[in-house]
Simulated scan of single mutants.
Amino acid sequence: MRAVCATRHTVKRAAVLAATAGLVTAGLLTGPASAAGPAAAPAGTKAACAYYNGTALTVYGQRGDRVSQVQCLLANRRYLPWGDVTGYFGTRTLAAVKKFQSRHHLTADGKVGTKTWRALYA
């Protein structure tokens, strides 16, 4: 059973990475190529955030794909600079999440739970 789960995770991750590579090749995965920030990208351009597609609780101090997804979605909405999409949920990400939550009439606790994920994907 454990090997089956690991295989599914590996296959799913490979599919996400392949899809992302295809978007990059097609020129559809955009985001500023430099540290200049959102001004470097054409107006209205958003990156395809393909790090994670779930709604698991994501909080301060965590690292990984879930955090990168939160940061990418926040950067697309200009709550976080692109240079801060690092995969680490630090103080800047915490402040951006709280600001986003406040502006979307959610409890501004800095925790990315189901309601905050839904609002980020909306």
Results as ranks from 00 to 15, higher is better:
Val59Lys: 14
Ala50Leu: 13
Ala75Asn: 01
Ala41Phe: 06
Val70Phe: 01
Arg63Lys: 13
Gln62Asn: 10
Tyr121Val: 02
Gly113Tyr: 02
Arg63Tyr: 00
Gln62Ser: 03
Ala95Tyr: 08
Gly37Asp: 04
Thr45Arg: 13
Gly110Asp: 01
Ala21Val: 03
Thr45Val: 14
Arg2Phe: 07
Ala95Asn: 11
Lys12Glu: 14
Phe89Tyr: 09
Ala75Trp: 05
Thr45His: 13
Thr55Leu: 09
Arg8Gln: 15
Asp65Trp: 07
Gly64Glu: 09
Leu57Val: 05
Leu29Arg: 09
Ala19Gln: 15
Arg13Ser: 11
Lys111Ala: 12
Cys5Pro: 05
Thr116Ser: 08
Asp84Phe: 02
Thr10His: 15
Lys46Cys: 09
Met1Cys: 12
Pro81Gln: 08
Ala56Val: 04
Ala21Asp: 08
Ala48Phe: 10
Val67Gln: 02
Ala108Ser: 06
Leu17Lys: 15
Tyr60Trp: 03
Val67Met: 01
Tyr51Gln: 09
Lys98Ser: 03
Gly27Arg: 09
Met1Gln: 15
Gly113Gln: 02
Cys49Val: 01
Gln69Asp: 08
Arg118Pro: 07
His104Ile: 07
Thr25Phe: 14
Arg78Glu: 10
Leu94Ser: 13
Ala14Arg: 06
Gly31Pro: 00
Gly37Phe: 00
Gly54Met: 02
Ser68Lys: 11
Gly27Val: 05
Leu23Trp: 07
Thr10Leu: 15
Ala47Tyr: 02
Arg92Gly: 13
Thr25Val: 14
Thr107His: 05
Phe89His: 06
Ala41Trp: 06
Arg118Asp: 13
Gln71Thr: 11
Gly54Val: 00
Leu29Cys: 04
Thr45Ala: 14
